[in-house]
Amino acid sequence: MKLFINGEEMIVPDDVTNVEELLDYFKLNNKAGIVERNQVIVDRSLHAEEAVTNEDRIEIVHFVGGG
């Protein structure tokens, strides 16, 4: 499956079917990441229910140092 993650085109295995599995795949599930799928924020509690499909545009952001 082809995804655009943080602006970059990536191929992820087809057994990744939802946001939770996508974060697992990148070993990010214990990180305080915030996910947006096709410009819609995915609530943390709904990661397992939010499907990921071919050509989705995914943003994964977090807090970094700033003033």
């Binding site: 943080n6 990010l28 915030i34 943003e59 994964i60 952001v61 977090h62 807090f63 700033g66």
Partner: peptide
């Protein structure tokens, strides 16, 4: 204060 930025997923 913090900023919001893309995570380096790798």
């Amino acid at each position: 204060t913090f900023s919001v930025r893309r995570m380096n997923i790798f």
